[in-house]
């Protein structure tokens, strides 16, 4: 009968103490660095709110920009952003969703379609300033739209199109194939199947993706800066061929000013921008959670 004395294998020097220590050290380092991200976000928000909170007021929202900090506001920039984003949405959403439907529902696996797919993936990685160069050359100068809402919106459309397509494709892919099969089995055409069944089922997912893409477009500065929204614009646009300024542009202009008051104005502008983005993202998350609940 063997003894019940525990005898760890002697050929090993497992050094469990040391390894346990290294392990927990490593874990804590990783944990620290993860929580550091939260610290950075906290620092950023505190910094901006403490600098800009006193500038945010009703007057700030309804005044045009001004050389005098205490009279300056971002009415024209805010309206410019609304104009731009609505125009962008009107062009980008139908195009993006239709592209996604084509790639998911209609496209056969051939060279051209594979090329389109690779192309979209690559476009998503092109820096936004390159879209700005394209917009400046093609829309502003070549098509002679000038530094207008239309030129800015078209530029942003090209920029977020890949994002919308990729998100919509994911949503369409998630629609169970059985829905399509049962529609076809009832004698529906592909058009009917797609518009009566697939699209409604994918809609919440598509909307989430679209809102996230639009909120990215709102914050994009470089492309519309390139298109020419740097000018001093006091009036809100009244048509799509009017010149415009936008929230991020106004923030950029204020941030470049040397006077410390403008620093506060920039922070105030950032607060308005962040609140806008936060609202849009909350809506997107709300839609996502609602449909997740409905599906489960």
């Amino acid at each position: 009968m063997s003894t019940s004395q525990a005898t760890p294998p002697s050929e090993f020097n497992s050094a469990l103490e040391r390894r346990r220590f290294t392990s927990s050290l490593f874990k804590n380092c990783c944990a620290f660095l993860s929580w550091l991200c939260i610290g950075i976000l906290g620092f950023l928000l505190v910094h901006i709110f403490s600098a800009g909170w006193e500038w945010v007021s009703f007057d700030f929202l309804k005044n045009p920009p001004s050389r005098m900090p205490h009279k300056a506001g971002l009415f024209s920039a805010f309206m410019g952003t609304i104009w731009i984003i609505v125009t962008t949405a009107c062009i980008a959403i139908p195009m993006g969703v239709c592209s996604a439907l084509y790639l998911e529902e209609y496209a056969r696996k051939n060279r051209l379609n594979t090329f389109i797919e690779i192309n979209i993936a690559n476009l998503a990685g092109v820096p936004s300033i390159v879209y700005g160069i394209l917009g400046l050359t093609l829309f502003v100068r070549f098509l002679k739209f000038g530094p207008s809402v239309l030129a800015g919106a078209l530029t942003l459309t090209l920029l977020i199109l890949p994002v919308i397509i990729i998100a919509s494709r994911e949503a369409i892919k998630a629609v169970p194939p059985s829905i399509r099969l049962s529609a076809y089995a009832l004698g529906a055409t592909q058009f009917q199947t797609v518009f009566h069944h697939v699209l409604p089922a994918a809609l919440p997912g598509i909307m989430t993706g679209v809102i996230l893409a639009l909120s990215r477009a709102i914050g994009e500065t470089a492309p519309i800066l390139m298109v020419g929204a740097v000018a001093y614009v006091r009036k809100a646009p009244s048509g799509i061929l009017d010149g415009f300024t936008a929230l991020p542009i106004q923030i950029y202009n204020w941030a470049r000013e040397a006077k410390p008051e403008f620093e506060g104005l920039a922070a105030g502008g950032i607060i308005v921008l962040l609140v806008l983005l936060f609202t849009m993202n909350s809506i997107a998350i709300l839609i996502r959670n609602k449909t997740q609940k409905a599906q489960s």
């Binding site: 993860s34 929580w35 991200c37 939260i38 950075i40 976000l41 620092f43 950023l44 910094h47 901006i48 600098a51 909120s215 990215r216 709102i218 914050g219 994009e220 500065t221 470089a222 991020p248 923030i251 950029y252 941030a255 620093e263 920039a266 922070a267 950032i270 921008l273 962040l274 983005l277 993202n281």
Partner: peptide, 27 residues
């Protein structure tokens, strides 16, 4: 923890670059 850190990362990713520019300059 994941439920806290992941959204924070998403928020960091969603902040416009001009805000980061301002943050670098003044913060």
């Amino acid at each position: 923890t994941r439920k806290i850190v992941k959204p924070v990362l998403e928020i960091l990713a969603g902040i416009p670059t001009v805000v980061y520019g301002y943050f670098a300059l003044t913060g």
